[in-house]
Nucleic acid binder design. Structure first.
Lengths: 328, 328
DNA sequence: TTGTATGCGTTATCAT
DNA sequence: ATGATAACGCATACAA
């Protein structure tokens, strides 16, 4: 009985305005109706504070104007920033965002994919390292940073970024480099940071050392690594490329504890472009991922059901930014 | 025709299994049916890769298992962390999260509220400073940090946090304090940080200075403020309480540029408990907001339609954490 | 131009 | 225990 009070429907609006159901629908969807009708309907909508029920609408249209976004978490500033720009890019296109935080848990990822499909989202944007994700046919799916079956993938130019890092260290006078990463063995786009780095080192003809530790290993392994390469007050390297800014931050702490000065004794470059507290200084000199453009690319892809993008890899250019841990 | 291929419905499952529609529904909802039936239905579901359409379900049940979350952005680590824990707390209750980033734009906030209502979410959790937000009757609404009409509000114990800051500075030997904030004039819970601070200073009988600058003012006003209180190589204060960690970070930069040592010459306390890069060291000594508990409280409130919580204010205790910018 | 009737996928109320 | 059917709120093809 009080149904009409708590949740007015189109029927209530029609009754209030004294018109037929179809007329109300037309007014709502901007289909021309007689002015006097339109005004009466609009007044009734105001009066009842009517809101269209997007569930009923979606049921009819098979369109929900909702995109699911799966990220590992929102604690990592890169994921947070990405989610933020995804939200904005989606909103600009009239879409809303269902956010799922997966904590890198493959089972959870699969669960969320299914939930999203059940919600009949118009597409899924997903940052996952899980190679076995199952996505139902016909779902518009875009992957970030990991190439997935026949789905399009958006990523920074990690290879180019790796080269750029080596090049910048070289330009700043480094002649003996190290690359450090904590690393998933899964093939994913960020792995190419190493490849690009190596390629550039060899092009430049300078020696380099790699230190890649297991996903589960403690950070202290890096401390050990540094000490192993520290003799007579000098580090074996004069430049270190870290696979992320977070790692760079750690490495810098270790270096400072060893009494080494950054950048005077060792220069350090990270990757991501992370800023302190979200919008202040850079954490370190870094290869910046174009997060806003990544987000836009994802949204464009997921919304354009253009099959010609299937299997394609969209690589966006990275840039170098000085953040105090290199000479320039 | 190929409808059944792209998006199988319960009807398709029923046909495939050779049972009636109602039987399928029962299997899906765990209502007991004959074993042989259940198995046939389950097989058909597998075979067709059937997914319930939550829109149709929501239409029937008036329940969507979706909560809308409105935050200003995900760039600020506090908001990001809050959203993260909200997501987790919601998931733990079987709810999904529609995230809206408002950029402090009141018009956008209102638009998103309406969108959320149209999506027939089961509730809204909102961090907004907009005093004029309109929420439809019957919508479960929880506010964070700002008390709103007759809706429940969840917040840290900002008053207690302010007192705690003054107290800790005093314990560490400070005898002349300053409070700085960049501040909305809107009444909101965080304003109580100042009140608590003042109250504690007066209790302790120590002098204090307030510097509250306009929302729109540049940060450099703080630099000016510091210089105005800097004479003969000494700052007038020996302890500064900053309304957020972000501001504390800035203040510390200014102090260091002036050649002052933190914490030897001046001690600084922030508010929030922000960590560098999301999960590493604290930015500064700080009053920590219990973000995870805040999130849980919001979720409990928004899900429990208990009217007795109307207008109530849930204040969660803050704690002090040493972060290197105080003596202890 | 306006009103009526049907169906979207699901659940729940009935008979069977 | 199972199967047929109405209803949820909306859009649309069609009739008036």
């Amino acid at each position: 009985m009080s149904k009409s009070v708590s949740n007015p429907t189109m029927k209530d609006v029609a009754r209030e305005a004294g018109v037929a159901l179809g007329t109300v629908s037309k007014v709502i969807n901007g289909i021309p109706v007689g002015d006097s009708y339109r005004i009466r309907v609009e007044e009734a909508i105001q009066k009842l504070n009517y809101r269209v029920n997007t569930y009923a609408k979606g049921l009819k249209n098979n369109k929900t104007y909702t995109i699911a976004v799966l990220v590992p978490n929102l604690i990592n500033p890169f994921f947070a920033k990405l989610s933020y720009y995804l939200n904005i890019a989606l909103a600009a296109n009239g879409y809303q965002m269902l956010l799922y935080s997966t904590d890198y848990n493959p089972q959870l990822e699969q669960t969320y994919i299914i939930m999203a499909e059940q919600k009949k989202v118009d597409g899924i944007i997903c940052l996952s390292y899980n190679p076995n994700l199952e996505i139902s046919d016909g779902v518009s799916f875009v992957s970030i940073d990991r190439h997935f079956g026949s789905y399009p993938c958006v990523s920074s130019d990690n290879y180019g970024g790796g080269r750029l890092a080596a090049q910048k260290l070289y330009e700043n006078g480094c002649r003996n480099l190290a690359f450090v990463r904590i690393g998933s063995k899964l093939t994913s786009e960020p792995n190419k940071r190493k490849d690009g780095f190596i390629s550039e080192c060899e092009l430049l003809g300078i020696p380099y050392t790699l230190k890649i530790v297991d996903d589960e290993a403690p950070y202290s392994e890096f401390d050990d690594f540094l000490h192993e390469n520290y003799h007579d007050g000098r580090l074996a390297f004069d430049g270190i490329f870290c696979v992320t800014d977070t790692l760079a931050y750690q490495i810098i702490c270790y270096l400072q504890k060893m009494g080494l000065r950054v950048p005077e004794d060792v220069q350090v470059i990270g990757f991501d472009g992370t800023q302190h507290l979200g919008n202040l200084d850079l954490v370190c000199s870094t290869i910046v991922q174009p997060v806003e453009e990544l987000a836009k690319a994802c949204v464009n892809l997921v919304l354009s059901q253009d099959a010609s993008y299937a299997s394609s890899l969209i690589c966006l250019p990275t840039t170098y930014a000085y953040g105090g841990t290199t000479l320039a």
